[in-house]
């Protein structure tokens, strides 16, 4: 049921940022600065996207010693597909209007 739910513009922004670097793992702070979203908006989105398997997450060892491991995120194949579908749906009314 949740899988068919439409993605919000903020969720699409997060997916787009991840899709720009599909092979990279991005941290929460990086995503927050790239999308301009605050932690209170970003994390519910990340949780929802992970629940829908549109992104995957893993713990990465820190670059600086003495720091805790950090959670990083990467877009999945399903996430790329959902993003493509969302952008084609968004551009369809405009194309129809000009047809």
């Amino acid at each position: 049921m949740g899988r068919s739910r439409k993605l919000s513009p903020q969720s699409l922004a997060v997916l787009s940022m991840l899709a720009n670097r599909p092979s990279d793992w991005l941290y929460g702070l990086e995503l927050a600065s790239l999308t301009g979203l605050k932690s209170g908006t970003l994390y519910p989105i990340l949780i929802r996207l992970a629940d829908r398997t549109l992104l995957e997450s893993q713990w990465l060892e820190p670059r600086e010693p003495g720091r805790p491991p950090r959670h990083a995120y990467r877009i999945t194949g399903a996430g790329l597909k959902a993003l493509q579908q969302a952008s084609s749906t968004a551009s369809r009314p405009a194309k129809e209007a000009f047809a």
Binding site: L29, K38, S39, G40, Y43, P44, P68, P69, R70, H71
Partner: peptide, 22 residues
């Protein structure tokens, strides 16, 4: 969320408040 707060160089209160809201 807490690991990201640790990674912030300055004050992480705003980040933590956002996490509370989340």
């Amino acid at each position: 969320m807490a690991a990201e707060a640790e990674a912030i160089k300055g004050d992480s209160t705003a980040w933590a408040l956002g996490c509370l809201w989340a």
